[in-house]
Design a protein around this nucleic acid. Structure first.
Lengths: 168, 168
DNA sequence: AAAGATTGAAGACTCAATCTTC
DNA sequence: GAAGATTGAGTCTTCAATCTTT
């Protein structure tokens, strides 16, 4: 039917069956949200990749470790905090280990568990990388937002997360 | 799955050097946004994967084609609308082609260009998949939002996109 | 059996190189 | 040379299988 050039259209126009699934305002908002989902991560990724040769996820893992007690966390805890599978985390830690940014240690009190420890080099890298990353976040996201926008963003994200978590 | 603490903390606490880069409200909002960035795509991905064995991106490509004139678009246009590299798109179209959902055709008026055409099977799949996908979007995102929230989401996403686009 | 973790293979994306047409 | 597109190599993520400890 119509050939809107909306990158994020959800309804299928050709045989749009009966009732609209999302109303006009919702469709607009959804398109915008999809675009953010698509492009903001890519922008952050780019900066970290160039500045520190790190994935956003790798940076995130290092940052979590840098804030942990003794710069140490069990892999399973790290995975939970980073919203990742244990498998993914294990692969990532292996990479970071090969770069000397993280070290594995058997966990003293649970012999099944493994701790990831941020090395001095790892800490140095995070400390060196954080300002640029935060500046990027500020430039890309918060510089364009009013205090009211920030409050709205927080509220709306909270509600979306509630929806994502529902029955899982 | 309760995410106890700041899964999305940005500042590096241990040696947080001097001035805060983001104020408290911004940090809260940022954490929430990162969580959405991490988990909403995963949720949508899951549903599409189970229902139609499609990536969200593949679904997106099929949906764009279904809305295009003659269910046909040049790969470069498709790439632009989907915010993807031509390379990525080419790979995806190859996969979809192997599944019989899309067909490649040389573009009549530009002999450099290639058109992607949605096949009947492809259209059938999109039409069959769309309702479930939209329902998922509704359940995960919009059911928890008021009309005011939707307006705020649209506004804030627009401003973030402006930031993402700046100097690129 | 469940929890913590690791590994290898398969799938998807990026990047660079390449080819053709403009 | 630039635009449109394709391809292969390398990288990251997922999935299933496996192993050890509880």
């Amino acid at each position: 039917m119509h050939h809107t050039r909306n990158a994020s259209r959800v309804n299928v126009a050709p045989s749009d069956p009966g009732p609209r699934w999302l109303d006009g305002d919702e469709q607009r908002a959804w398109r915008a949200l999809v675009a953010v989902l698509l492009r903001l991560p890519a922008a952050l990724e780019r900066q970290l990749q160039e500045d520190a040769d790190l994935t956003h996820f790798e940076y995130f893992v290092l940052a979590l470790l840098s804030e942990a007690e003794d710069r140490t966390l069990r892999l399973s805890h790290l995975a939970a905090q980073a919203d990742a599978s244990l498998s993914r985390l294990s692969h990532v830690v292996t990479r970071l280990e090969h770069r000397g940014l993280v070290r594995r240690e058997p966990c003293p009190e649970e012999r099944r568990a493994t701790n990831a420890v941020l090395t001095d080099d790892g800490l140095t890298l995070v400390v060196a990388t954080a300002p640029g990353h935060v500046a990027e976040v500020r430039r890309r996201v918060f510089d364009g937002l009013t205090a009211r926008d920030v409050a709205a963003l927080d509220r709306v994200c909270g509600r979306i997360l509630a929806g994502v978590d529902r029955d899982r």
